[in-house]
Nucleic acid binder design. Structure first.
Lengths: 358, 358
DNA sequence: TCCAGTAGGGCGAACGTTCGCCTAGATGAT
DNA sequence: ATCATCTAGGCGAACGTTCGCCCTACTGGA
């Protein structure tokens, strides 16, 4: 005996069984399927009795709405796409979580497409999402900055908000003030009296690297110190390992430095390790400042002084802007840059060795 | 003048314009839309000339396939859903990346649904994904372990593979051997001569916590040491902050301990900080071992001894199993448990202070 | 008694695909 | 010249919804 699809049979082994449709619900409740649609979407006027009958029928057959069919006729999926880089980047992860919470709050579902480790297929992610007809896209992938194909794929068809600058594309940007970040960090080190300040930069192509670098230089200029012409700068790749390696290179090239600014906290962690291995005490011999205020920062030994970036707020605002855009609001004419704040802990020499982290 | 939807006009400001359908392509190429479908899917036989005409037309109107419509008729979306917990959990992030790479390799698209921070709505994520008719689900959310509603939502309708044990549900599990993890860590500490070994455990409800705990106890028994009855165990929450706090509590309750095993590396990081603040040297006064081999482990001061868990492999195998399941393979009758390996660094006392981490 | 108004629900069409079947013409062998 | 066989492409139906319009049977007021 083959069971009818309308009778899944409670508790039976019905793996892979077809989903019930509103027609199945309708025939079970003895109404037309359009009436079922009305009930399930809360529209129209139906007698309380039929309403309850229909809802019970839907429950019994385990009805799950088909977003494909719905999207086909409504020309909209009430779904937002997020294009994310490697989520194991902590910083990005927090952006995304915040953004998704905001979307949820506003009544939107989100799906995430992750670009692969190579990071070369941002355009492919756009395709995946636009084929599924998401109503808008939030870009949280630094790789997108340089993706030339991206503009063509987007085709101006979808509202887009990005957390990163995107080359040659006029999409609204929500981020933090990277220039201020670099300036605050270096200015603080200068206040401590440091003159030979090394920098572990982010990857060279990226906007955030350029801007944080510009902030460093501004702080140096403001203090009347001259630019070292990049002599004390080494490029990292945002990872702990990269920061470690860059610091070793830097110490070889500029052994005189007494302070170090890393373009993110993870590289700063690697830097502290490298300094330790080279027998330099932090902050005694070399002061270290990172930025982002990643979770490990306040628990390292010594605790890491850093510049706090408002991840949650950034993600939230970006998503709110995207939803507004979809609802027809005019695109913001300029970037939204959130302010950052210096957080003094131990590694810059501000606090006693064990004073602050509690 | 209103432009026809088939004439987007290159370079024009056509934001929010409708997507072109195969009918638009067809009329531009002068064929029936079904023929367009054939060409775009590589089926049927068409003259080279028409084929090229159609492809050009598709390019010109910027055709993007509608996965909604396609999925409606084919009853399948060639899409896998991933239910993920907070992606800022590094460990989970690496699972997911590996799983997605495997899916991509096998020709499947993936979309991720993140459960929110509260983590209470795993069932809601299942709904989001099944409404969109994904062909299978990979669960990468520890919260799912205890979700009672989950079984009802899944309804045995979708193939599911999980990275975590799920209470009361017979879904294939791919993970690592948590008992062995706990046993390896504690056995190593015992070999170093430690007898008073503290444990910072994971959250108490979780399977992984129970199993790693069981591993600890087995190691103690095997060495002829008796169980301390939980006297030297404090519960953490997998975070650095949680490990820090738990360690402070533990030191108060059991000041005699000479070694510490944390149920993950992040808590171990917090533990090292706490020990430092209490004036205990690591590994001199207290040896510390974590597990997972998270990226910071080899760069902390001192570098963290740990038990390596094969994240990439786990994610890859889980996804491969899911795809096989969808293709009709029988569900594996038992869990797939991957082996783990001890990694000796400095914090257990194995290496010299600066010897290993390079 | 008659008619307007309303509540309750049915019905057709459309959304953008895929899929299998059908047909008109060309081709080749006999 | 006849007929079977291809080739190229058309055609109808279906997938599961939503939406607007239509119909029927009450209800109540004049």
């Amino acid at each position: 005996m083959v069971m009818a699809p309308t009778e899944p049979g409670p508790g039976s082994a019905d793996a892979g069984r077809r989903y019930a449709s509103i027609k199945d619900v309708a025939s079970r409740a003895g109404v037309s399927y359009q009436t079922v649609s009305k009930v399930l979407n809360g529209g129209g006027s139906v007698a309380p009795a039929t309403l309850e009958r229909i809802q019970r029928a839907a429950d019994e057959v385990g009805y799950v709405p088909n977003a494909l069919a719905r999207g086909l006729v409504t020309r909209g999926t009430k779904t937002l796409g997020v294009i994310a880089a490697d989520p194991s980047d902590h910083v990005l992860g927090r952006f995304i979580v915040a953004a998704q919470n905001e979307a949820r709050r506003l009544g939107w579902a989100t799906v995430v497409a992750n670009v692969d480790a190579a990071g070369s297929d941002v355009a492919g992610c756009v395709d995946v999402l636009s084929e599924r007809r998401v109503d808008g896209i939030l870009m949280a992938a630094p790789q997108a900055e340089a993706d030339a194909e991206l503009g063509a794929r987007l085709r101006d068809r979808l509202p887009v908000v990005s957390l990163h600058h995107i080359e040659g594309l006029r999409v609204p940007l929500v981020g933090s003030d990277h220039v201020q970040t670099g300036a605050l960090a270096v200015a603080h080190l200068i206040e401590h009296g440091h003159r030979a300040i090394g920098v572990i930069s982010g990857t060279s192509g990226r906007q955030v690297t350029v801007l944080r670098m510009a902030g460093c230089e501004r702080a140096l200029r403001d203090a009347g110190l001259d630019d070292d012409g990049g002599e004390r700068t080494q490029e990292g790749d945002w990872t702990i390992a990269g920061g470690y390696a860059a610091t070793l290179r830097l110490l070889e090239r500029a052994p005189d430095l007494t302070a170090l600014f890393a373009h993110n906290d993870y590289m700063a962690l690697g830097a502290i390790r490298a300094l330790h291995e080279c027998g330099r005490r932090v902050p005694g011999d070399v002061a270290v400042v990172g930025c982002d205020d990643a979770p490990p920062a306040r628990y390292t030994v010594p605790a890491l002084s850093t510049v706090r970036v408002p991840f949650e707020e950034t993600g939230r605002i970006a998503m709110a802007q995207l939803v507004a855009l979809i609802d027809g609001a005019p695109a913001p004419t300029r970037s939204t840059l959130l302010p950052v704040a210096f957080v003094a802990r131990e590694s810059c020499g501000c606090a006693s060795e064990t004073g602050d982290a509690r």
